Amino acid sequence: MAGSPIPHFHNQQGHAAIEIGVKEFKCVGSKPPFDHPHIYLDMGEDDERVCPYCSTLYRYNATLAFSQTMPEGCAYVENAA
Score class of each variant (00 low, 15 high):
A17H: 04
C74R: 06
P52L: 13
P71M: 15
I39E: 04
F25S: 02
P5D: 08
K23W: 04
V22L: 02
A75G: 07
P7T: 06
E72K: 12
G29C: 09
Q68N: 08
A65Y: 11
N79S: 15
T69F: 11
V50E: 12
A65H: 15
F9E: 05
D35Q: 11
H8K: 09
M1D: 00
A16V: 07
C27H: 02
E19H: 05
L57K: 10
C27Q: 03
V77A: 08
D42S: 11
P71H: 14
D42C: 12
P33I: 08
C74Y: 04
P7F: 01
Y60M: 07
D35C: 13
Y76I: 06
E45L: 14
L64Q: 04
S4N: 12
Y40I: 02
Q12P: 00
G29V: 01
D35I: 07
P71S: 10
T69Q: 12
S4K: 06
G29A: 02
R59K: 15
A17T: 05
I6W: 03
D47R: 08
M43G: 10
A75Y: 03
R59G: 02
P52K: 12
G29H: 00
A80G: 14
N79V: 11
P33D: 09
E19D: 09
I20N: 01
H10L: 04
E45R: 11
G73A: 07
A62P: 14
Q68H: 13
E24I: 01
I20C: 01
K23P: 01
A80D: 15
L57S: 06
E24R: 02
G3E: 10
R49Q: 09
E48G: 03
A75L: 03
M70D: 13
A62C: 04
Y53M: 15
A65F: 14
A62D: 07
A62F: 05
K31A: 08
E45P: 04
I18A: 01
L64D: 07
T63S: 15
G14A: 03
H15D: 08
E45Y: 05
P33C: 05
T69G: 10
A81F: 11
C54F: 11
I6E: 03
I20E: 00
A16F: 04
A62L: 02
F25M: 07
T69M: 07
I20A: 00
D47A: 06
R59F: 03
V28N: 00
D47F: 09
A17C: 07
D47W: 04
A80Y: 13
N79W: 08
A80V: 13
F66M: 13
Y53H: 15
T69V: 14
A81W: 13
A62M: 08
R59H: 06
E78Q: 14
Y58Q: 09
H8R: 04
Y53G: 14
V77D: 06
P37W: 13
H38Y: 06
D42G: 02
I18L: 07
H38T: 03
A62R: 11
N61V: 05
I20V: 10
I6F: 01
M70N: 10
S4W: 03
G3S: 10
S30M: 12
E24K: 14
A81M: 10
M1Y: 00
G29Q: 02
L41Y: 02
V50G: 04
